[in-house]
C-alpha cells in the first residue's frame, strides 16, 4: 500500500514510466506530468466531458479515472489522434463546419465523436445528438458539431 506508485503505460504510442501520487487522476497526470495539455479539465465530476480521452480503446472520463488505474494500459489523447491521423476526417469536418469556437470542449468532443463513428454510429441527427450529450459546449449551438460528425459518417459511407 502506498500513496505514490510507479506506473508504466503507453501514451500515444510512447511508453511512459512515472511515479505518481495515487490520488492523481488520469487527466491531471497527462496534463501536468506528461505535458499533454490537449485534454482539458472542465468539472472534475464527470459531467462536462472535456476530459474525455481513450483508455484501452474506449472513451473514458479522465477525471474519473486514477492515473494508477491506467498502469499497464494504453492511452490515446487528442494529440495522439492527430499524430496518428485517426482524427483527420473529423478535424477537417470540424474546421469546415466551424464546429468549435473556444476549443475547450473540442478534445473531449472529438474523442466522443470518434468512438461513435468507429463503432458504426448512424448519421441520424438525433442519434448523434444523444451520443454527444455527455459533452458540454457553451459556444456553439451544437448544430455545427452534429453537422461535422454527420459529414464524416456520410463520407465514410461513400456518400
Amino acid at each position: 500500500m502506498t500513496r505514490d506508485a510507479r506506473i508504466t503505460l503507453t501514451v500515444n504510442g510512447e511508453e511512459i514510466s512515472a511515479v505518481v501520487a495515487v490520488r492523481t487522476n488520469l487527466v491531471d497526470f497527462l496534463r501536468h506530468d506528461v505535458g499533454l495539455t490537449g485534454s482539458h479539465v472542465g468539472c472534475e465530476h464527470g459531467v462536462c466531458g472535456a476530459c474525455t480521452l481513450e483508455l484501452n480503446g474506449k472513451a473514458v472520463r479522465g477525471c474519473l479515472t486514477l492515473a494508477v488505474q491506467a498502469d499497464g494500459g494504453t492511452v490515446t489523447t487528442v494529440e495522439g489522434l492527430a499524430d496518428s491521423g485517426r482524427s483527420d476526417a473529423l478535424r477537417a469536418a470540424f474546421t469546415r463546419r466551424n464546429a468549435l469556437q473556444c476549443g475547450f470542449c473540442t478534445p473531449g468532443m472529438l474523442a466522443s465523436a470518434l468512438s461513435y463513428i468507429e463503432r458504426g454510429g448512424s448519421d441520424d441527427r438525433q442519434a448523434i445528438r444523444d451520443h454527444i450529450s455527455g459533452n458540454y459546449c457553451r459556444c456553439t449551438g451544437y448544430q455545427s458539431v452534429v453537422d461535422a460528425i454527420s459529414d464524416v459518417i456520410r463520407e465514410g459511407d461513400g456518400a
Partner: peptide
Amino acid sequence: PRADAARLLQGRG
C-alpha cells in the same frame, strides 16, 4: 474557415 481551428483540434491550444 478559422486558421485557429487546426491548433485547437490537435490539442495544441
